[in-house]
Simulated scan of single mutants.
Amino acid sequence: MSKSPVVHPTKDEAFDAIKQSLADWAVYASDRTVVAHGDSLSLVRQMPDDSVSLILTDPPYHSTKKANIVNDRAFREDEAFIEWIEKYTREWQRVLRSNGTLYVFCSSRMSARLEVMMSHYFRPIAHVVWTKPNEPGFDGWKGKAKKESLRSWYPHSERILVFEHGQYGTMEASRRSPFGEFLRDMRKKCGISMHELTEVTGAYGKVNHGGAVANWEAGRNIPSEEQYNKMCDALISTGKIDAMPTYQDVVRPMSLSNDVEYTDVWDFPSVRPFKGKHPAEKPVNMLEHIIRASTYCNDTVLDCFAGSGSTAIAALKLGRRSVSMEIEDKWIKRIVDDIEAASDDIHNPSVREIAQKSNNVSELSLFD
């Protein structure tokens, strides 16, 4: 079922509520980030509803069976692993704001079954293939594998499942995004037709007489912020509603261009081994790519399997807030150390420049 947009708490209020809910488990907290130590399923159950804008997380893969990753060998059968992830999925549906996005890393062997299960709670919008290329001079396990003994194609890629609220079905109504449903409901409540609302924005379609509004309600695309504000003025002027939520509270961000990787096949190089590397560490530039595309400035990013804390570092560098959950003591220490180091660098010109290239630079008062 879809989650209808509502008047959310402000970003500051939502983050303060998260900090309060996790206070008993927090080993580090500031006005930008929380690091909580413990079992993340128990922790995420403490969090308030509709409190995060992006969930970017890397659970144990199960199929890799790595001894140095907690819970990677915890499940004898695939079904038991999927049931475990389903418990998280229910909580993710609850804590993710109506215009939020969910990214889940997984193995190629488990991706299909996980995507089917998770589609009962969310609407799938992408299935990204990360090719994991190695830098020159570093072959990794791909170079060490005995090819003649393989009984299937070597699983060198990883998958990233991407979801939004809502469900994907055979009927057009079930393909609507939460924003599309919200716009339709508000328009009908105010007694305005698609034609009338289209006239306000001036976005007529050559074939579809409802113009852009019909496409927006069907979930095919979204209005610009200027178009949305014009519609808000028209809807409020009917006197049948008092206010409309802000653009950032209803429209799911998706900021892509020719200047960045916009396809669903990614070639970010994998992280080379180093002393203190997490066994499943993801490249920070790939995490920054996701966060920059799928959040507004000051949004909160949740990682339930924080590991090395790279997601938190990427979020902070881009002017976002972060919530990190980790069960292992040694990784908790690295997360806190790296966050403290990153916080010292926040005022560096290079960090400010990175954030200013992200969306909504007007909100970057935290760097001043």
Rank of each mutant, 00 (worst) to 15 (best):
S4M: 15
V6L: 12
A14R: 13
A17G: 05
A23R: 12
A36E: 01
H37L: 04
Q46P: 03
D50A: 11
T57W: 04
P59C: 10
T64Y: 12
V70N: 10
R73E: 14
R76W: 08
E83N: 15
W84N: 13
R90P: 04
E91L: 06
Q93M: 07
R94T: 02
S98C: 06
N99S: 07
C106W: 08
C106F: 10
S111L: 07
R123K: 15
T131W: 12
G137M: 09
K142S: 12
W153N: 11
H156W: 08
E158W: 07
E158C: 08
E158R: 05
E164T: 12
H165C: 09
Y168D: 12
A173C: 07
R176V: 08
K189Y: 00
S193P: 04
Y204L: 11
N221E: 11
T238M: 13
I241F: 00
M244T: 01
Q248T: 12
D259C: 09
P283H: 05
P283A: 12
N285K: 08
M286S: 04
C304L: 06
G307R: 04
A312K: 03
A314P: 03
K317P: 07
S322N: 01
E326G: 04
I332T: 03
V336S: 08
N348S: 13
S358A: 15
N359L: 03
F367E: 06
